[in-house]
Amino acid sequence: MEFKESQAIYLQIADHICEQILLEKWKPEDRLPSVRELAVQLEVNPNTVMRTCEYLQQYEIIYNKRGIGYFVEAAAAKKIKQLKKERFLVNELPQFFRNIYLLDVELDELKPHYEKYKKSHFR
C-alpha cells in the first residue's frame, strides 16, 4: 500500500479496510486478518494496525471478539457510507463546487462523465 504524507497512516489503513467492506470483499460478520497479518501485508508496525482497529471500533465498523480477532459489524457498510458522506460534504464538496464555478462547468455537463466513470470502475 502506498501511503500519502498528507494523512496519518492509521487513517489511511482505516480507509483501506472500509473500502474492502464497501466493495464486499469483507462482508458483515467476516473475520478480518489478524493485526499481525495486516501489519505484514501493509508493511507497517502492528501498533499502527492496532490503532486503526481501535479507531474503527469507536465508529462501530468492526468489533473485537477477545482472543479470536476483529470482525465486521453487521451495519458496517451503512456506517462507513454515512461517515464518508459527512466528511465528503464538509471537506471535499466545497472545493469541487469552487472548481466547477471557476471553470464555468454546469452540473448537467458532469452527468455523462460520472456515468462513464461508474461503468469503467464499478462494473
Rank of each mutant, 00 (worst) to 15 (best):
Y63F: 15
E60I: 09
P46N: 08
K65P: 03
I100D: 10
R51Y: 00
L42H: 11
Y101F: 10
Y59K: 12
L32V: 09
V35H: 08
I21V: 15
G67L: 06
E29L: 12
E19D: 14
L23I: 04
V40R: 15
N47C: 03
K25H: 10
V44G: 07
R31N: 09
Q82P: 04
G69H: 06
C53Q: 06
I80S: 03
F96I: 13
E92A: 12
E86M: 03
Y59M: 00
K79H: 08
I61W: 00
Q12Y: 02
Q95T: 14
Q57G: 07
D15V: 05
A74S: 07
E92V: 11
D15T: 08
C53L: 09
D30T: 07
L22A: 09
K84R: 09
D30Q: 09
C53Y: 03
L38R: 00
A76I: 06
A75Q: 15
I13H: 06
P94T: 02
L11K: 15
A14E: 09
N91Y: 02
N45P: 02
I21T: 09
Q57A: 07
N45Y: 02
I100S: 11
G67Q: 06
A74K: 10
K65V: 15
N99E: 14
F71D: 01
N64R: 14
R36E: 02
L56W: 00
C53P: 00
L11V: 12
M50S: 10
V72T: 02
N91M: 05
L23Q: 12
K81E: 05
L23K: 12
F97I: 15
T48W: 00
D30R: 09
L38F: 04
F96L: 15
I61E: 03
E37T: 13
F71C: 03
E43F: 12
E54V: 07
S34K: 11
L11N: 13
S34D: 14
R36I: 02
E54D: 11
W26I: 04
P33Y: 01
A74L: 04
K84V: 02
N45S: 11
V90P: 01
E43W: 11
Y70P: 00
P46Y: 06
Y70T: 04
R51L: 07
R87S: 05
N64W: 06
V35C: 14
V35D: 04
L32R: 06
K81Q: 10
I13K: 01
P33N: 02
L38I: 01
K27W: 05
L32N: 07
Y70D: 01
I62D: 00
I61M: 02
A39V: 13
K78L: 01
L83A: 11
Y70K: 03
E19T: 13
P94D: 06
R51S: 08
K85V: 09
G67S: 09
E43H: 15
D30F: 10
A14I: 13
T48V: 09
N45Q: 10
E54N: 11
L93R: 01
F96T: 04
K27Y: 03
N64P: 05
V49L: 03
F71L: 04
I13C: 05
A39R: 13
N99H: 13
Q57Y: 03
E73W: 06
A75Y: 10
D30V: 08
A77C: 06
E43L: 14
E73S: 15
R66K: 13
L11Y: 13
T52K: 05
V90S: 03
V40E: 13
N64V: 08
A77Y: 01
E86V: 03
L32G: 07
I80L: 00
R31A: 10
